[in-house]
Design a binder for these strands. Structure first.
Lengths: 237, 237
DNA sequence: GCAGAAACATGATTAAAATCATAAAAATTA
DNA sequence: TAATTTTTATGATTTTAATCATGTTTCTGC
């Protein structure tokens, strides 16, 4: 009885797995993995885990988008990372044996597996390959965070806003029309990523809209002039 | 011929090793390590590695302090991390098989070992314990970076300046007098960490000095009123 | 010890962005 | 569908911090 779930949720048949850190596992290891995970469905806006909580497993996003946020001073939110299907979630606190220092909230309905903590550690110790994959993921997140630091330190709000739109494109890509960002964030959420006030965020997006860099339709943002947006973000000189 | 260096530089007798990621190695592994490292001395202001360079080993700080900086837009420097003896250096690019995305510059004369790349990877694969130590280090650096993001996003320059002084205290500690920060940075370097202009940095430090929060003597900064500095940094409410 | 350069200091001005205020539009719920 | 709340929008004002300008001190090399 290796497979607790239905055939659809079996890891061997999971096409997201192939683009995840678990792609390095062989068939046997994958079945082991499958036996130690459980899957859950989350509604939009639900918490997957919360700040200060203790991790008891590794989350793996099957479908859906998630924001990692932390509550700063005066209760203001800060979006630290954005996560998509195939990504692992909650690995930092788990690996360093600490409490979560941020919360994970779904941006849309999501399906998420949780892999048993003990099994995951054993799997890591048994498979250097898997460990290296996780290290690469963390390394990438560290680089992204440090890029963000430079941006926050040295760029003005307009540049950071343009950069944020490019980041959303890089993270979630476009819809079928090849220009609409495949994620819906409120202006406040965008501001919480960019590090500005909601009003400034609204103002700048309106301005980009007027200047035909982007097109706004409710929460949907389309990139009309990628080249000019890159210029506005002032990426490399 | 296991030991290339003098007895003083042998890893077995290195007291810095015990507070480093390599403390998990046994005697035999430590001798192996010793056979695959070489040690070098750097003068203050020297580059250990530079942005865009290719890593060919892991650096381990024997003595001395190092700043990790990246060149932002308009050539402005950003200090990303501060490194001290016992710390490893240049691990991110090495582990993710990328070029360095920042440069490492010594803040004072330093003695630094470099551990052969191939050996280090083999050692990691052979010792999950060592790997976990490295992962913990990266995890810590990621948390620090994300804390910095929140600070840059949500705090004003005065708060960040106070926070930076507390960070220097946490990183390098005090001198024997138990109040003077055990590191010498120029005002410009502090500004490059805080994310402000050199002038604003100078002004705020003078102000803290006038307000008796700190005492300035050239590059030496003493913390006179820790409690008030914590208040000024607006850490937790 | 001196000359030049770099770092530190401080005032004046300008620019950027936050905050405050108000209102319209959209979404949610009764 | 009407009522209420939330989100988006935009103008006016204030605050913050950058920039510009100038002078002083400290450091460094000869």
């Amino acid at each position: 009885m290796k497979n607790n779930g239905s055939i659809e949720t079996g890891c061997l048949h999971c096409n997201v797995r192939l683009s995840s850190v678990f792609n390095v596992l062989d068939q046997e290891q994958t079945q082991e993995l499958c036996a130690h995970k459980s899957c859950a469905v989350y509604k939009k806006g639900q918490y997957v885990f919360t700040e200060n909580g203790l991790p008891n497993g590794l989350f793996c996003i099957n479908s859906g988008k998630i924001k990692l946020t932390t509550t700063g001073y005066d209760g203001k939110e800060q979006i630290l990372r954005l996560v998509k299907s195939g990504d692992i979630l909650g690995y930092r606190a788990l690996l360093s044996n600490e409490r979560y220092h941020c919360s994970a909230v779904t941006l849309e309905d999501a399906s998420i597996c949780i892999i048993d903590k003990k099994y995951f550690f054993d799997a890591l110790a048994a498979s250097p390959k898997l460990m290296f994959e996780v290290v690469k993921k963390m390394s990438h997140d560290l680089k992204t965070a440090e890029d963000h630091i430079v941006s926050l330190s040295q760029k003005n709000v307009r540049e950071r806003m343009a950069e944020a739109l490019l980041f959303l494109k890089a993270t979630y890509g476009f819809e079928e029309d090849n220009q609409t960002l495949n994620v819906s964030l409120s202006r406040e959420e965008i501001a919480d990523y960019v590090g500005t006030s909601t009003e400034s965020c609204i103002r700048l997006l309106s301005e980009f809209n007027t200047d035909k860099l982007i097109q706004l339709k409710g929460k949907k943002i389309s990139i009309l002039n990628l080249q000019k947006l890159i210029q506005t973000a002032n990426i490399e000189d």
